[in-house]
Write a protein that binds this DNA or RNA. Structure first.
Lengths: 155, 155
DNA sequence: GGTGAAAAGTCGCCCAT
DNA sequence: ATGGGCGACTTTTCACC
């Protein structure tokens, strides 16, 4: 499962898979200019190496009742390794937190959180975020509109 | 394709699909307690209504050569509708911008941008971001680590 | 809502080159 | 490393309760 660099065929496969997530291997192979078996083997290899992390099904957050989207800018009091690890472990436990990045600059972490309504977010803020290990402050910015949100990478 | 509320079976289907993105309809139907055909029909309906937006294949950004992840906080000079529309249209054109939210609070927009290296980001900043319609300033915060990043919603 | 079934297409994996 | 082929699945669509 190693850093073997991707060659052109790999990149073509990734690009094709990304733009056509449920195309059959047969059709993919046509697009990338390989035949079925080699193409299939490369896909398996890319999966085994973790280049292909997973498949996913994307729902419309509003249509499933999660219209509230918040960027929570988090600062810590303490920055010892233990506190950071505890906080990151907590983060993984809460499905309302979709993304969490540790940051350079002013905030220690930025988290993207979804909620059913403002009340639900406020409860989440008070019951979870403000009790995270080592927390100093949480600054919540609400998104007015999702202009764009895609997992597709520029390959 | 309307706001017909989701019932329990719908939610169970969505939850099951989300945790098992390539389970067969046959197996899904078992989990949710319906039989094949009704389950399949509901899935098609959820797709037609846009509740299920799309399928996706998630790659590891580092392993495909995009280790740089930036949150760009953008402020505008002008806030007329025309400027906003032009900016949002531009956003959609650039695949390096994975997410773009219009915000309440200090920034007008927050964008998540990926790049192959610092140089590439700097070029993108100078050639694209700073030339966006109506731009006043761009404040780039680099992520040191992705603690969590998932499209899975808490259902 | 449920059953059963069948056509078309796909996958996973053998083999040969 | 590529291409061929085949059995075992799935998807999708029936007709009918």
């Amino acid at each position: 499962m190693q850093p073997r660099a991707l060659d052109d065929s790999d990149r073509r496969i990734l690009r094709a898979m990304q733009s056509h997530p449920d195309m059959s291997v047969a059709d993919l192979s046509g697009i990338v200019g390989l035949s079925q078996t080699p193409c299939w083997r490369r896909i398996k290899r890319l999966e085994a190496e973790g280049v292909i992390a997973r498949r996913a099904i994307l729902f419309d957050p509003k249509k499933v009742g999660l219209p509230i989207n918040v960027l929570a800018h988090v600062r810590l009091q303490r920055h010892d390794e233990e506190t950071l690890e505890a906080l990151e472990r907590e983060t993984l436990e809460h499905p309302e937190i979709l993304e969490c990045f540790s940051m350079s600059g002013e905030s220690d972490y930025v988290m993207r959180v979804v909620a059913a309504d403002m009340d639900a977010y406020e409860r989440f803020l008070k019951k979870v975020l403000l009790h995270l290990p080592g927390i100093a402050s949480v600054n919540s910015s609400f998104t007015l509109k999702t202009v764009k949100s895609t997992p597709d990478l520029p390959l």
